[in-house]
Amino acid sequence: MSVNGHTLRAAIIGTGGIAHAHADALASLAPRVELVAVTDVDATRAREFAATCGGAAIYDDAGDMLAREKLDIVHICTPPQTHAALAEQVARTGVVALVEKPTALSLAEMDRLVAVEAETGVPILTVFQHRFGAAALELRQLVKSGALGRPLVATCETLWYRADDYFDVPWRGRWAIEGGGPTMGHGIHQFDLMLAILGPWARVSAIAARQARPTDTEDVSLALAEFENGAVATVVNSVVSARETSRLRFDFEWATVEVEHLYGYRDADWRFTAVPGREDLAALWRREPSDELSSHRGQIGAIIDALVSGETPAVGTVEARRTLEFAAATYASAFRGIPVEAGQLSGDDPFVSRMDGGMVPWTPVKEVLV
């Protein structure tokens, strides 16, 4: 079953840690999709990875793989600084690209991908798997229907812990390679889901700090966000928090909906509370409970469904740009000390070309790549 009447043929570029989540998801979705090829700069790692994935073909070079294999989708699981160039390369061969977050390291790179997607008509998708959990999908429908009333207040927290040695990996904690700290690499999943629920954001006021970790980037950021629909939210991203949690809370006119988990949620992690006098609304919530984890499997399955039916899969470049712009606005507001409105970062603004805008307020502890 595929766009061509056969099993979808998938490949993975980059066989490090996150690639295993992609491979596991693909295996669980067989026979609708098959992993047929992998490539990595580390040939030994690629061979070991392929051996655990049913013997996919191994390539030394992504271009060679794209030229020789007939593919439907390519999963890009490389370090962040390579994402944009690889996504463009894949799309220009006519193959759907599924890119791990962040899609790009800057708004300028993201805008190029938006243009490439428009020019080629080939989807360039970003991994934001928490959008595709059953409860989140239902909440989006309830919000769209107006059943819960206006969204009023939201809380979005990604409070994680990463020890100093986590940053021994050369590309972690470096502006020029990772694009940022927990705002770009950790909390982005939670505030992407928040944006998917609440819709377009209007203004951000933020602070960022390097509290404890040996990085060039922040290890904590906090933002106050205002939305076009009038909702307001707090967003906290941290890698210095001993009790780890990922938490989202939405307060609507007639109900509070919240979830607390760590790296993926199930229905049991959600709570629905109606305001007094509107207890009838509880009957609308999760009428068909699911025990499936919000994971790569959910998003990849949705992509397959879309491709088979001839629809455009989520999450394309325009939506992903909105999330990346929220991260850029967080940094711009924090480092400039002023609120930043949606659409304000444009043209030759330094925060368009790089997330730190060239104005990090603390002295780097490593050499910053330019």
Rank of each mutant, 00 (worst) to 15 (best):
A23V: 03
A282Q: 15
T39N: 08
A87H: 08
I124L: 14
E226N: 12
S246Q: 10
G298S: 09
D349A: 05
E244K: 11
E69N: 10
A10P: 05
P339N: 03
I177M: 15
G301Q: 02
T82N: 15
A23E: 09
A342T: 01
A223T: 01
M65C: 08
G5T: 05
D216S: 15
H20D: 06
L26I: 15
A283R: 13
L71P: 01
T330D: 00
L281R: 03
I12D: 14
T312Y: 13
F191T: 05
Q89W: 03
S353E: 08
V370W: 10
I304H: 00
V315C: 15
M359F: 06
E288P: 07
V235F: 00
V365S: 08
T93I: 03
W160P: 00
W201Y: 06
A67R: 14
K101P: 09
A91T: 08
G180M: 01
G301L: 01
P123L: 07
L224V: 09
L105P: 12
G357K: 00
A255V: 06
P350L: 13
V114R: 14
W201H: 02
I197Y: 12
C156N: 07
V352R: 10
C53S: 12
G230P: 04
P80R: 00
D269F: 09
L86S: 11
T39A: 14
D280A: 14
P364Y: 08
A306M: 01
G301S: 09
E157M: 01
R278K: 14
T317A: 15
D216W: 04
K70E: 14
I58N: 07
R45D: 07
R47N: 09
V36L: 10
A84N: 10
F252Q: 05
A327F: 00
T52K: 11
I124Y: 07
A50K: 01
T312V: 15
R45V: 02
E341H: 13
A51S: 15
D42E: 05
E244Y: 10
E117Y: 12
T7C: 07
V99A: 09
G14W: 03
A327E: 00
Y59R: 00
V370E: 15
P79G: 12
D267L: 06
